[in-house]
């Protein structure tokens, strides 16, 4: 079995996790910029993080033969401070030409505030103006439905948005149809308690179709499972889905979306 992990915060993971992922069939890992678990105090902190995502982490992954790609942004949890956001946004353009950068992400909303929305719109504008793919984080738990609606409106309000170049992540049963109906890609995140389980993910694939959906584990510094994606393949097989269906969802779908970035190139394996 082969798979792509399109959303993993590998700077928070151990080398044992890299080894386990590669052993399970991982062919590429993509790492969106994320909240560190605490608020960074300055733009310099973000500069260092962007260097980590574009220089250091790809080298760490390469030791396991795993191609590593990254997405850059200011996380919505840190968007309340508009002055800091402006300083960080000014840093990003210089990093977009680095060879492992796929686009702008994971942008989005957290508590659905007016300031978060402003910073989201600035990120969308940057992505469109630089012809970058967009990876969107939708809010947690009770905030997800409202936030997903606000995010879709913000994306569609920008005349340059091309939905086929945007993936809206962390969808669940109440938000996935909203995302897919507007032509966006949808990401299902397999994450304990706060997001989705393997059985529910396969339910959504069965009811919504697998055309524009990818699965990811979003493993980070919290309780999370870097092998959640290959474990979901087991759930698919238990229900009688074919190996080709598993390959489509776990490998060909993320490959198709990510290949819209000229930086996403893999040595194809059969």
């Amino acid at each position: 079995m082969r798979y792509i992990e399109p959303h993993g915060h590998m700077v928070s993971r151990t080398t044992d996790d890299y080894l386990a992922m590669v052993t399970a069939g991982c062919k590429a890992v993509c790492e969106p910029a994320f909240w560190a678990g605490f608020d960074r105090r300055s733009a310099e902190g973000f500069y260092d993080y962007f260097c980590q995502l574009t220089e250091h982490e790809p080298k760490r992954a390469a030791k396991f033969g795993l191609p590593h790609f990254s997405w850059l942004c200011l996380n919505p949890k840190e968007s309340e401070d508009l002055a800091l956001a402006a300083d960080v946004l000014a840093l990003i353009p210089d990093f977009l030409d680095r060879p492992n950068v796929l686009g702008i992400g994971e942008i989005g909303l957290n508590k659905n505030t007016a300031n978060e929305l402003k910073v989201l719109e600035q990120h969308i504008d940057l992505a469109v103006s630089r012809d970058q793919l967009i990876l969107v984080h939708t809010p947690h738990l009770e905030d997800k439905l409202k936030g997903t609606k606000l995010i879709i409106d913000a994306l569609l309000n920008h005349s340059g948005t091309r939905p086929e170049r945007v993936i809206i992540d962390h969808v669940e049963e109440h938000t996935a149809p909203l995302v897919l109906d507007k032509g966006f890609w949808a990401g299902i995140t397999l994450y304990p308690e706060s997001k989705c389980t393997p059985p529910r993910a396969v339910d959504m694939l069965e009811t919504l179709g697998a055309d524009r959906i990818w699965l990811n584990c979003a493993c980070d510094w919290g309780v999370s499972d870097p092998l959640a994606v290959p474990k979901t393949a087991l759930e698919m097989k238990r229900r009688g889905h074919s190996g080709d269906f598993v390959d489509q969802v776990l490998y060909r779908n993320p490959h198709r979306f990510l290949s819209q970035s000229p930086n996403f190139r893999l040595q194809e394996e059969t």
Binding site: E80, N110, K111, N112, T113, A114, N115, E116, L117, L141, E142, D143, K144, L145, K146, K149, L150, H174
Partner: peptide
């Protein structure tokens, strides 16, 4: 279990 309101919040509490 979701927030049914539609307007952005003035600030994050």
């Amino acid at each position: 279990l979701s927030d049914p309101t539609e307007e952005p919040a003035p600030r994050a509490e």
